[in-house]
Design a protein around this nucleic acid. Sequence first.
DNA 1: CATTAAGTTGCAATGAGATTGCGTTTTTAT
DNA 2: ATAAAAACGCAATCTCATTGCAACTTAATG
Lengths: 135, 135
Amino acid sequence: MKKLENKLEQNKVRPTAMRLLVLKALQNQKAAVSLQDLEMTFEKADRVTLYRTLKTFQDKGLVHSIEDGTGATKYALCQDGCECAPEDMHVHFFCNSCNDTFCLPKLKIPSVSLPQGFIPVETNLLVKGICANCS
Amino acid sequence: MKKLENKLEQNKVRPTAMRLLVLKALQNQKAAVSLQDLEMTFEKADRVTLYRTLKTFQDKGLVHSIEDGTGATKYALCQDGCECAPEDMHVHFFCNSCNDTFCLPKLKIPSVSLPQGFIPVETNLLVKGICANCS
DNA sequence: CATTAAGTTGCAATGAGATTGCGTTTTTAT
DNA sequence: ATAAAAACGCAATCTCATTGCAACTTAATG
């Protein structure tokens, strides 16, 4: 538990009981989780508190959010050296079979040469298909 | 107007009055439009009808939809040779300044080599930054 | 240790966008 | 001309995101 506390403090997030539980829950996930996913891993938890906890984590660089086209924002813990912001991020993969969304941190997004006048700031690459577990 | 009718018929969409108006409106746009954008280009139009028209157009390959992170789905007419589905698509660009979303049909998404077992079906690449008009 | 300020949580409520049900109208086919 | 099929318009619903506010907890200060 000390490790979790340290992680929060390193990111300037106060280690409250709730936040420790959320952080622990996030570490147990193999795929990115939606707010609803997260809510269901707790017996009793307020959706809004979880929502704000995730927002805080995101602001402080503990997690990043992913739009996978399902409509629900997914969240995943940042790995060591996760380049969430403001630069390009890693690739995300959405499995059409199990509907899980994965970070592929090893893969960097290839840079694209934009037309004259377009200045890139941030790039998101989402690949959809069949994941390793389902194929 | 004949051209518009032909375009609809070529895509096996019945050329109703409403659909012709929507198609014409879409052709007048320089950027992708949301449902709300589209609604505002008409004096009087039912949101649901426009929604279903866009869905139909999308199903028949006349338009493709874009998730640009704003929360509202954007729609854009497919260009000649637009590879909406099921293969990789072209790049989309969201301008942080004017909030417009553009198709960059000339740019093909570079293929990424996924880890063992991951099978790609569809790829979406969204670049955010400053567009040519705003820079 | 007591007090106060700041930050956090829980509950209710709201907002935006997407989507469906269904009766009416329009179009197509016979 | 008429029946069947498709499209439309209106109301309603659903999901997810987000805010307001009061109660509670934590941190800091005297």
